[in-house]
Design a binder for these strands. Structure first.
Lengths: 227, 227
DNA sequence: TGTCGGTATATTGTCGACAATTATCAGGAG
DNA sequence: CTCCTGATAATTGTCGACAATATACCGACA
């Protein structure tokens, strides 16, 4: 995934939407910062019309929040909301794994296993310097979701939630348990290869709960550091 | 729920959004029908600006689909997509029930039980003529979701999915198993009252799977009738 | 007669300007 | 010095008009 093949979005509003979305997710637009329509319009050399449309779509993704007659700000992110998202992910991705176990083709499963073995290689060669910072982790989850073949699940997770997750990662600096996560990923793929949807869901939910627990720990540490 | 207390939406775009959403969900705008911007703008006596914004939000709810330079149509709904939604609901509402079991207050649980006993009374007095057509069913699910106290869950289900569900119900004429559904509802509330989140999730998922199976059956019947 | 190409129409996308609302700040009263 | 008040400025919401694209229609040609 990462930077997609730079699809030629036909309309200005789409282009500007993708661009701002990227800037928010990558942290170039700081959380909580105001989004001034005239300013951005000048900066991008466009009119306020398409820009407003783009902001509307960003609001639908929960990447910006908007108050009538006041304006839009980049979403700023309480730790509570982050933990809420993990609950949603647990439910949704658990279901995705269950469906993927019956919907994925043998080739797709093989590809997925290949991705993980690549990950393992990377980790063993450069331990610590996890590729997980490079969001290879999300690559895995992304593929599972795609494998569910459930278009609504795909849309919810890939178009909305994962962008939020990436944003939160940048903000909270959540680098997560590379080795352990990889092992859990491998178990999930094994269950899918066995066509065991029940097991795949259980393992995925366990995995996300563990990730959530890790986030809770990190957040508590950060709170302690401040104090 | 039903028709809300006619909140005074401050902005035209919000008002028009709520209005069109309602018309789509209630079937006054037929699925698949084209949404002509100039026409609607004249009909509502507004400009195309706010209307376009409203259409954008409707697209985010999946109530309309839009193609660039072509226009927007009211979403038309394959049975496959309907079944996909049930999978999403199973995952999300299962989690909601689990969370509600620990997050709901005793009063809220009592209120919920009261709602159900009212439902039971209605059913016994007028069997067959289910209040379920009147969407009392969604009232129950609505409250469970609210009870989860997870704002993202609430937003996903109450602002997006439930509108789609109502729309699909109108289109497919899915009137579902009043008595059996009520019993399942009661079991779910019992589990929540016991503060047994695990059980509440299992029961909710079972309930939605049963509803889905019912939908599958009805769709098959309709297909048979046509042939 | 059926298909292809071109023109005409209508619709969507975009723009700049105006109106309405809110935030800012200066000034004065307590 | 603080707090309230009122005018000012800036931003958002809305509008109508223009440009770009797609659809529909019609005639010419195979």
């Amino acid at each position: 995934m990462a930077t997609s093949p730079e699809e030629t979005h036909v309309t200005i509003s789409e282009r500007i939407f993708a661009r701002i979305q990227q800037e928010i997710v990558e942290g170039k637009m700081k959380p909580g910062s105001k989004i001034s329509e005239p300013e951005l319009a000048r900066a991008y050399g466009i009119s306020r019309g398409p820009l407003r449309e783009a902001i509307g779509r960003l609001e639908a993704c929960s990447l910006v929040v908007r108050k009538a007659n006041v304006g839009a700000r980049v979403v700023s992110l309480s730790s509570e909301q982050l933990l809420e998202i993990y609950h949603v992910r647990e439910a949704l991705e658990g279901m995705a794994a269950r469906l993927a176990a019956t919907a994925m083709s043998d080739e797709e499963i093989a590809d997925l296993a290949g991705l993980l073995s690549g990950h393992r290689q990377q980790i063993e060669e450069a331990p610590g310097l996890g590729y997980f910072q490079k969001e290879g982790d999300l690559d895995f989850h992304y593929r599972i979701v795609q494998g569910s073949k459930n278009s609504r699940l795909i849309e919810l997770l890939c178009n909305d939630l994962y962008h939020l997750v990436r944003l939160y990662r940048h903000q909270f600096g959540l680098v997560s348990r590379a080795q352990r996560a990889l092992v859990e990923h491998e178990h999930i793929v094994a269950a899918i290869a066995d066509r065991d949807g029940e097991m795949a869901e259980l393992l995925m939910r366990h995995h996300i709960r563990a990730t959530r627990a890790n986030a809770v720990r990190r957040i508590a540490e950060q709170a302690a550091e401040v104090a």
